[in-house]
Write a protein that binds this DNA or RNA. Sequence first.
DNA 1: TTATCTTACTAAAACGTTTGACTAAGATAT
DNA 2: ATATCTTAGTCAAACGTTTTAGTAAGATAA
Lengths: 336, 336
Amino acid sequence: MVKIKDIAESCGLSIASVSKALSGKSDLSQKTIEYVQQVAKEMGYVPNASARLLKTNRSYNIGVLFVDKTSSGLEHEYFSTILNSIKDEAEKNGYDITFISHHFSNNNLTFYEHAKYRNVDGVIIASVDFKDPEVIKLVDSSLPTVTIDYDFNDKSSVDSDNVQGIQDIISYLVENGHKKIAFIQGDDTSVTQKRVTSFYRACAIHNVPVKEEYIKQGAYHIPQVSGKATRELLELPDRPTVIMYPDDYSLLGGITEIEKHGLRIPEDISIVGYDGIKLSRLLRPVLTTYVQNSSEIGIQAARKLIDLIENPKTSLPERISVKGYMQKGETVKKIN
Amino acid sequence: MVKIKDIAESCGLSIASVSKALSGKSDLSQKTIEYVQQVAKEMGYVPNASARLLKTNRSYNIGVLFVDKTSSGLEHEYFSTILNSIKDEAEKNGYDITFISHHFSNNNLTFYEHAKYRNVDGVIIASVDFKDPEVIKLVDSSLPTVTIDYDFNDKSSVDSDNVQGIQDIISYLVENGHKKIAFIQGDDTSVTQKRVTSFYRACAIHNVPVKEEYIKQGAYHIPQVSGKATRELLELPDRPTVIMYPDDYSLLGGITEIEKHGLRIPEDISIVGYDGIKLSRLLRPVLTTYVQNSSEIGIQAARKLIDLIENPKTSLPERISVKGYMQKGETVKKIN
DNA sequence: TTATCTTACTAAAACGTTTGACTAAGATAT
DNA sequence: ATATCTTAGTCAAACGTTTTAGTAAGATAA
């Protein structure tokens, strides 16, 4: 690999001068700067990020922590879209992305140690167990961090606006005459808590009575669980007119169950999803669901992290909330 | 950050001794080794990958090149599953993953330059335009590379077995009495070429006449395109009894079109997808499709790359083919 | 006793950069 | 003519490691 020294020799200049010429600044003659850059190009010079980092303490590398309990965080469309937009936004700003994780090999580094080991300038944390002491240690460290869909005190985060999402769904259902609203929750996470709180609040505002038997514990992304909850709801003496699911994917487990009961959607029962996965528009009937703006979430997270990295003195902890919108599909029936 | 020098001072040893003690090998007394490791742990020492790399020329970091033309390679389940399994397998072996890409910022590095800049030990290439001169340059460089779903001369690759896949589908269709088989192809890539060749061959073997009007140019992951092709097929005077789609996702565009024509699946027309996305099992009717073993593809790619990195002398270029299997769903009707 | 071998360490160079302090030569001011 | 200021560069240390060659002290062999 050609290095600065080679260019220096080729140009008859000192290493220091070449380094300065390549970075463009400093007190070299314009002629020299251009000459050096020209030669560097011809020689196929590529700087060495590691050597540079050693001196500057800046890696222009962002760590991304993505560890689903099911170890397939990336396979959920919501998260892969977020990752993709983090990547794009980071690249636009000259940053690369490295995954942070446990090392199952020789050395067993914690998340924080791993981030230090790789010298990342900051970390974006998504789809993890936010109660994990290791995650907490990472967030509490001196490294800039941005969490997604979870808030830590005095730390920056980007959230999908779950409160607004549930509110919009309830408003829409009420507009369509629904009063018997069932809600299958996801796993017990802060996202779920926000949704549940918002659910009760919105129902109260709209004078919709909340029946406890309409509220079901469920799980994200597991069709079987939504299926089971659906069955229980359908077998209630006083059946709900609409069922809200934790996400579009697990909703499909509900559909199966509904069809097993010989019911039609939306004629006999309405359903609402959450997420707005791409497929939701292709299914027939088209899903009524709340579309999360996942790529915007990724963009905001990357921007905020880079801001924290580049302006450590002036960038304040911030909670960014990203709104989505109702996709008014065909799975909710207007009743009397 | 605590560094080796700090440990050395604390232990009253030289830097060299500490370094050796931490790596465990070499000619130090067992007592010293244990003592040093103990102190290092207490002081919270984390090695610095960049400094280490500078001396050893090994980063234990793998580059991943994932650039879809639609710039959303990651959002396709096939690729996000591959990425996820690359990541898992790499981590198990002590490697990290960094994305390789163009830098849209200040310095405009080629893929190869970027890989060099970040000192990755090797690169896995997937979901790119393999005709891109930059990609070719990267593959032809001295860096170990593994391509996914594309073969370069004398280079290692991992392929989903598309030949077998199409063969299995045709066999299954023939078993079920189908002779009028339509095939909507994906974009013009090497994967498509393999599938098309396999299609003709399999049809020949089974004595299925291939009607040229049953073969349609299409595209991957674009429901509208599959929808249009479907419409044209349905309007043929001699309609096919089954339509093969380039992928499960775009197949949904076909379903919409079929329903518009008032036809039922599979009673009036059979359909077959490709990929085996998770949703394919949840849809009703359950999709008949060929399931690609995408996580195995990622695992194999990571393993081969690490093998190439660690055994540069003995590891030979290899073409690994990963088989999938037929998911016999409910979208193909058995006919007389 | 002296020579050789082990053992347990240390010294110092090197990896490729960046950067603050320095300098030589010419220009300008007095 | 001397002092000061610019300009255009150079020097050398430093970043945190690894590693080769070396060494001092004690053990063993002849």
